[in-house]
Amino acid sequence: MSGECINNEDLHWFAVRYRLGELSEQERARFEWELGENQAAREALAKAVALEAAVTICFQKTSLPVRNAVSFRWAGFATAVAVAVCFAMLIPFFKFDPQKSRQVGEREATPRLHALAFAWTEAGAEMADASFNADGLSWGIDLHWEVDGADSSADVFSADAANETLSGAAFVEEERAGDYAALEEAAGDAGWMLVALSGMQTLANSETSGSETPGDESP
């Protein structure tokens, strides 16, 4: 191969281009001959590899493609808007309007539903964890507030069915004892609903027995 050595300055440029695969066939053969004969050429190639590695790391760790950055901002903005809209949609269902609830109850034809609405409004405003099954056959304690629960109505309400649906031995025990305070304490967050149901049961009993005194629960 050629006996004319590449000068030291060109060696580094040759080394980088050799590393990047940018040399012509003739240049490549010439440089590989240098690699066999010249320690400076070998060390230049080692430096070229180190420089390429360092440059790669620097650009890798410090830069983001502009396109990705823009997408990220729009994605974040869209997510924030979606969360805000969902929250705004949920706000009305956390607002408890006793007056409105009473009106809903009064519109229904059945006396039982009227009594339920009355008990509901009297019991309190927490509606986070209860739902009303539209067919009126059962109550369910649910952790998720269901949109249809507030306005759903039922033609028939069965206290017995409610007792079977509501879980927890404490409820059954405390309802038999007929103690409002104990009911609330035993059921925790759902206590207001249990109190309402118990009150409704009392009203139902009073209708059949002729008693007008709420609170005379029989065990």
């Binding site: 080394a15 050799y18 070998r42 060390e43 190639l45 590899v49």
Partner: peptide, 9 residues
């Protein structure tokens, strides 16, 4: 350094 050189080759 030798390893870098050989990676270049």
């Amino acid at each position: 350094e030798l390893r870098r050189f050989l990676i270049g080759v």
